[in-house]
Simulated assay, not measured.
Amino acid sequence: MRHVRMVVWRAVYRSSGWCLVSLTVCVLGLLAGRWTGWWPSPYPAAVDLVGVPILLTYAVWMQQRVDRDKWNAAHKDSPRLEMSLEDLDGLDHEEFEFAVRDLLRRDDLAAERVGGANDDGCDVRAVDLDRRVWAVQCKHRRDGIRGDAVDVRVVRELKGTASEVHKATFALVVTNGKFTNKAVPQARTLGVHLIGRDLLGQWASGTPLWELLEPVPAPLRHPADGRRVAA
């Protein structure tokens, strides 16, 4: 049900801009006829009552677009957090969790480390700009790709707690190592996203998370909208 609501929301959000533009053009024509007598407007009182709010809504929407453009221009050349795999290999497990938290924050998610003895399989919990919740399990390997592979048990445990306990939209396992042959197909079946060493390297070097997880679209909202949700 949560997935269906998300799909519907995204469809409405994407179409709302063009619908608003089209509606505004129609309203402008009706108002022009109403106020100038250039051509008769049907239901003149209704045009006055509905037309002005629509024009105000359009003005707010245009201001939002301007704010987004200004934000993008101001942050275009800002330094982005980048880490090398060697840096990540040199961390301990707790430091690795904080590093993953920082990468999520870099991608404009409100993220907090919650790892510990009673974390219920979630080391980092994050909320993106569309209010989608991420439950992230971190598995650091001191020996990197040569370390023990993350097995299917981790995938199953995270799947078991992500939705029920953490109310997560997405579940993600991140490691600087590798996954077992059983873990990969099981994760695909259960809908758990896996970030192994290769993808982690791309993510840590600056590629946004959305470009690595193709089935997961980027948030439609923008940091300039001022709607960041606290984790």
Rank of each mutant, 00 (worst) to 15 (best):
A162E: 03
F170G: 00
P219L: 10
V124M: 03
L199E: 04
A74F: 14
G51L: 12
V150E: 01
S41D: 12
F96G: 00
Y13K: 07
Q137A: 12
A218Y: 05
G121T: 05
H166I: 14
L20F: 08
K167G: 00
C26D: 00
P185L: 12
P223T: 13
A230F: 15
T180W: 09
V114G: 07
V12R: 04
A99R: 06
A46P: 00
V133A: 04
M6H: 05
A204N: 03
G147K: 10
R156W: 01
R10C: 03
E112R: 15
D48G: 06
T175G: 04
L49H: 06
A32G: 10
H166G: 10
E94L: 11
G37T: 04
V216D: 00
R125Q: 13
V136C: 09
I145M: 07
K139D: 09
E95P: 00
D69N: 14
P215W: 05
D92I: 11
A183H: 11
A126W: 13
W210Y: 10
V136F: 08
E157N: 07
D143H: 14
V21W: 05
A73K: 14
P53Q: 11
L209R: 04
D102H: 08
V136H: 11
W39S: 05
A230I: 09
C138I: 12
T57E: 06
L104W: 07
L103M: 10
Y58I: 11
W9S: 13
P217L: 13
D225M: 13
D148M: 05
P44K: 06
R221I: 04
A11L: 01
R228W: 12
V4G: 01
R221P: 04
S84C: 03
G226V: 11
L31R: 02
L88F: 10
R132D: 06
E97N: 09
K159E: 07
G90N: 15
G147Q: 12
D130C: 07
L109W: 13
R68Q: 15
D48R: 10
W203Y: 07
D108Q: 15
L209P: 00
W18P: 01
V60K: 08
A126V: 07
K139F: 11
S84T: 15
W210E: 05
G201K: 01
G226I: 14
G116R: 03
S163H: 09
V124N: 04
S84M: 06
M6G: 00
A45E: 12
A117Q: 02
V114E: 08
R221S: 11
S15C: 01
Q64F: 13
V152G: 01
D48S: 07
V21C: 05
A135C: 10
S205E: 01
C26P: 00
G160H: 06
P40V: 09
A111P: 03
A32W: 15
V154G: 00
K76L: 15
A73I: 14
D102S: 13
E94W: 06
L91R: 08
P44T: 11
P217F: 06
D151L: 04
R101M: 15
P219N: 14
D48H: 06
G201I: 02
P208N: 06
T175K: 03
T189W: 02
M1S: 13
Q64S: 13
L190D: 03
Y13R: 14
G90M: 14
D87V: 12
